[in-house]
Amino acid sequence: MTTALEITNLRKSFGQTEIIRGVNLEIKDDERHAVIGPNGAGKSTLFNLITGRFPQTAGVIQLHGKDLSGKAPYEINRMGLSRSFQITNIFPKMTVFENVRCSLLWSLGYKYSFWNMVSKSRALNEGAEAILEQINLTARRDLPAGLLSYAEQRALEIGITIAGGADVILLDEPTAGMSHSETDYIVELIRKVTVGKTLVMVEHDMGVVFGLADKISVLVYGEIIATGAPEEVRANPRVQEAYLGEAMEAGH
């Protein structure tokens, strides 16, 4: 198995404050990797560094062996990495169908074309319909995305994230703010759409984490204190002390 994402000695400071303090992480192809940790541990910052939203202060991030430093988000996306956001990030005024179709444009090679009509492309329209089918939003196809329910918007965001065919998918708290049944639904959806892909997710819900992940990393104050299979991490005394004990008590 080859390495999809490799992070070496990553550091990030905002002014005087160091948020990420030397993170090392290796994520293999087809792995489902969860990053957990208490609030303010730097999980979202880590995601923002990987996806080029912020520049790192030091360290190296490699996607399939290629260095990502200095690359803009759109360049990183073109290299096969896609992400969702903690706060729903879709195109609210466009229809659900348009949302998905836009996310297919680049990967189908349309680039900045002004000589193709989007409505005339079968690959584009059928591709978008297929994604809608996968995320069960076919019935909502012509509604402005901003009018969908919260859970539907999250599902749409996952659809947009995977549509471009990226093989490394980063999901930032995909089940945040959801009811139990909605969470179960989204977990199933994630499982379904990430088959054969590398998944990295930040998540608070321990049920989701232990249900989905093959491997878990625990991030505390900008450092990874443990990485391993769910059972190993659960048994790790440092993790229990730092975080898991209270979170698991709260979760059950």
Binding site: T51, N77, S82, N89, L105, W115, N116, S119
Partner: peptide, 25 residues
């Protein structure tokens, strides 16, 4: 109705999301 025209709407609505779809806003 072209890809660039559609993406113009996308960038208008949410430039950051568009960047994570492979388009430079």
């Amino acid at each position: 109705r072209t890809p660039i025209g559609r993406m113009a709407n996308a960038v208008r609505d949410n430039p950051e999301r568009a960047e994570f779809l492979g388009y430079s806003a």
